[in-house]
Write a protein that binds this DNA or RNA. Structure first.
Lengths: 96, 96
DNA sequence: TAAAGATATTCGAATATGATTATATAACAA
DNA sequence: TTGTTATATAATCATATTCGAATATCTTTA
């Protein structure tokens, strides 16, 4: 059992990391281009610590990465193509 | 904010429903064909009440549906094509 | 070095989730 | 009707998530 389930653990974690409205919004914005925390905060309309928390979770799960840019920190998707596919699939099926 | 997030709520719920190793296994099995609870239990190696709980959650989220078949209950994917796409994407990206 | 701006971390409370065990229900057969 | 098989539900406990408030940590500039 454990062995079989293991194959699905990575995928489950990945999906779980995406399965929050705020995080989906963030990822959707990043699919349009690299953005710093404050931009994201404005676009997503969530307070700064919360944005940071969600970003950190996304980063921990290998969905985004970041680069310091002066006193700002810019986040971007690690795999834009894959995320586009995911979102296209969701859109095609009227889930977004 | 609330309004914007609302657009992502359905997708988030959908992804969340999928984001568990056991449920991914179940869905993967159902992608190969309709199966009753006991079959799923054997394939997934999880005890019966737990399987039922996961199935009920999948059903609640519109991912599977069921039909009574004698004293057995068979579950099947509501949208095989979409699930195949999801899984193909995950596989393509080495998440499964 | 001090101040200001941008982002991150920590903590607590509320809530949600998951597994296990026990029990209930439904369908059928004898 | 009684027993048996198949599945569902409920209760409980442990753990995980989420958010907001407070505070900390850079990074740059004065």
């Amino acid at each position: 059992m454990a062995k079989v389930k293991y194959n699905y653990l990575r995928a489950a974690k990945f999906l779980k990391a995406l399965s929050h409205p705020t995080r989906l919004m963030i990822v959707n914005e990043l699919a349009l281009g690299k953005k710093c925390v404050n931009d994201i905060k404005e676009l997503v309309q969530v307070n700064q610590p919360n944005i940071s928390q969600h970003l950190s979770l996304l980063k921990l799960n290998g969905i985004v990465d970041s680069r310091q840019n002066g006193k700002m920190k810019c986040y971007f998707l690690k795999d834009e193509a894959m995320m586009r596919e995911m979102f296209n699939n969701l859109k095609k099926n009227k889930l977004i």
